[in-house]
């Protein structure tokens, strides 16, 4: 089977700092893959390279949503990458705070809809149908993450855990084939984290998306991941099943060097 996402030797330099140093990583269709590592290891930076927010200094990133021909995406602008089937959430939540929860999700549909300026002004049958479809799909998505009662609530007023789930719903609305989650459990209480396990697995199964997630919560990572990559100082130091990673001496050392991770 061909990899859905294929990262080879990606490098990202910030001035003199090499934040990502030759990382290679694959995600196959239907997988849940975790990316872990101490603070400042370069995990978020790697996400930013994949989603076009940074242009990598070296290496190659390809995605292959159809399983036919891979496409190089490094250096493409973010919206093109999203249109190709890569969606993400942000570590420091980036919702559209002044818009309602529903509107946030509706915005996710932007790249799957076509109504332009004229279409919106004339507001003909085609535009209406598209708008209605967007509303219905956004409602369904909010229901899926358990936020339907808050559809008209302004996103900035939602609780932290709800905001994280709203980000997931918004990303899913772009109809991705690979979903990137950057610390989805951060700031959630234990009960919410517990429910998140189930949500992520359900999303994978129902939406047929592969998931790549960054997470510090080891219980969650060990529970749901098919495979785990470990990053330290920008380098990939280990890769394997949860069982292999748990017993890997280099990983234990990397984590023991750091105190207080959850």
């Amino acid at each position: 089977m061909d990899a859905l996402l294929d990262i080879r030797g990606v490098i990202m330099d910030f001035g003199g700092l090499r934040a990502v140093d030759g990382v290679s990583l694959q995600v196959f269709p239907g997988e849940i893959v975790a990316l872990i590592g101490p603070n400042g290891a370069g995990k978020t930076t790697l996400f930013n390279c994949m989603t076009g927010i940074y242009r990598p200094s070296g290496g190659e990133i390809r995605i292959d949503p159809t399983g036919k021909a891979g496409r190089r995406i490094d250096g493409l602008p973010p919206h093109r990458i999203t249109a190709l089937g890569l969606a993400r959430t942000f570590q420091n939540i980036r919702l559209f705070n002044g818009m309602t929860a529903l509107e946030n999700v509706m915005l996710g549909h932007h790249c799957r809809t076509t109504t332009g300026l004229l279409g919106a002004i004339v507001h003909g049958p085609a535009a209406r149908r598209q708008e209605q479809a967007t509303i219905a799909a956004a409602y369904a998505m909010l229901e899926r993450v358990g936020l339907a009662p808050y559809a008209d609530e302004v996103a900035g007023n939602l609780s932290y855990g709800a905001q994280r789930r709203l980000e997931i719903a918004r990303a899913l609305a772009t109809a991705p084939s690979l979903l990137l989650l950057d610390e989805p459990a951060a700031g959630m209480n234990p009960q919410e984290t517990f429910e998140l396990d189930e949500l992520i697995v359900r999303i994978r199964d129902e939406h047929k998306v592969a998931i790549l997630l960054i997470e510090h919560d080891m219980r969650l990572v060990m529970n749901i991941s098919d495979r785990i990559y470990v990053l330290e100082y920008g380098k990939s130091i280990a890769c394997g099943t949860p069982l292999e990673i748990r017993g890997n001496p280099r990983v234990i050392e990397a984590y023991l060097g750091e105190d207080g991770h959850a």
């Binding site: 989603t51 927010i53 973010p78 919702l95 559209f96 818009m99 915005l107 300026l117 990303a171």
Partner: peptide, 29 residues
């Protein structure tokens, strides 16, 4: 009409957070 349309929502989203807007598939330029 525009305010509550696909384009209008993209405008407001742009005002709220440009990076998130781009990451959600909106052609910012």
């Amino acid at each position: 009409r525009l305010q509550h349309s696909r384009i209008g929502r993209a405008w407001v989203a742009l005002r709220e957070d440009e990076i998130a807007c781009a990451a959600m598939g909106v052609d910012v330029a």
